[in-house]
């Protein structure tokens, strides 16, 4: 496979975007909602792929970083009355700040320690919202992005608009990340992941590279958190559960953890599984119990099987540079 230039990638993104945006006019609200969900999950999973697949760190706490981004975006809207595109940016910046602090701790930890620490974060951080009045407690805070602007046309439904916003953001993020990963930063991260000792011998500052990867990954997670808040219309501790963090890791693993494009597949799988298993559960005449738990069982089995059969993620032809 030949390396594409940033401009080619931009054109591809543009093409995919145009196709998706036109296609969105021909589906119902539920599909538009799910489409937006896929785009947002894809961004969040990309943040894990960046972290795990490229710099070899693991995080079970990215749901918490999404919460940081989401809350920051909402607060920026409520208290600073920023227009919503800027609040997404604020979400990303807040995520980056939190990720920087966490990344300094993370660079000293490996594998299981890092997993455990980020797990504690995932459990601990959302409950902080109950502590501070400004964060709205258990009820959370409303996030109102508003309806579609008039220039996109009449009868433009709410979720279709969310889908547009999410898709445009996702394409922009993927374009940026794809280009970033083919610069020296991307190569450094891969070197750190493949062989830390050899990387250090070639003069790469491992700790610095890891902190940078963590910060950037958290920024992306924060941004996806802000988008997630837009889709839900609110931020609340219950929206950013431990399960969300686990879901993101699952999506990244299912997609092949060292493949950025795979995050889209991972996101589609994550959204499709509950849908499909619901259909199966209904077909089998299952109770609420089945409907509630079948998706979890299916994703978990997929996760275990993927890790067992292909610990490195599904085999995808890799470019050798």
């Amino acid at each position: 496979m030949k390396r594409k230039s940033p401009a080619t990638r931009f054109l591809i993104s543009l093409g995919v975007g145009a196709f998706l945006l036109i296609a969105s006019g021909h589906v119902d609200e539920l599909r538009a909602y799910q489409g937006a969900q896929v785009a947002i999950y894809a961004i969040a999973i990309a943040s894990i792929v960046l972290l795990t697949g490229y710099s070899g760190q693991i995080s079970l706490g990215h749901g918490a970083l999404m919460a940081v981004g989401g809350y920051a975006a909402v607060i920026a809207q409520i208290h600073w009355h920023l227009p919503y595109p800027l609040t997404f940016l604020i979400g990303g910046i807040a995520g980056a700040l939190a990720g920087y602090v966490l990344g300094i701790a993370a660079a000293r930890l490996r594998g299981p320690y890092l997993a455990g620490t980020t797990l504690a974060l995932a459990v601990g951080l959302p409950s902080l919202a109950n502590q501070f009045h400004i964060l709205g407690g258990e009820q959370g805070l409303q996030f109102d992005v508003g309806t579609a602007p008039t220039w996109v046309g009449k009868d433009f439904t709410q979720y279709r608009w969310f889908f547009w916003v999410a898709v445009v953001m996702a394409l922009a993020i993927f374009w940026l990340l794809r280009n970033l990963l083919s610069t020296r930063y991307g190569r450094r991260w891969r070197a750190v992941r493949a062989n830390p000792t050899a990387a250090a011998l070639t003069g790469i500052d491992i700790a610095k590279a890891k902190v940078l990867a963590f910060t950037l990954s958290s920024a992306v997670a924060g941004l996806s958190g802000a988008l997630f808040a837009m889709l839900l219309g609110l931020v609340a501790p219950l929206a950013f559960t431990l399960t969300l963090s686990f879901t993101l890791v699952t999506g990244a693993v299912l997609a092949g953890v060292s493949n950025l494009g795979g995050s889209i597949i991972g996101a589609i799988v994550l959204v499709a599984i509950p849908e499909l298993s619901n259909a199966v559960a209904t077909h089998l005449g299952g109770s609420d119990r089945v409907t509630a738990n079948l998706p979890g069982v299916v994703t978990s089995v997929l996760l275990i099987v993927t890790v067992l059969l292909a610990p490195n993620g599904p085999k995808i032809p890799r470019r050798h540079k």
Binding site: I58, L60, P112, F246, T250, L303, I304, V307, P311
Partner: peptide, 26 residues
């Protein structure tokens, strides 16, 4: 010996956690 040697087990245990929770729920 693979680069994911320290990460794969963590992910597998998460999968088992999810599976057991799901089964218990069922």
């Amino acid at each position: 010996g693979s680069p994911v040697e320290s990460i794969a087990p963590v992910i597998a245990t998460l999968g088992i956690l999810g599976l057991i929770r799901g089964i218990a729920g069922l």
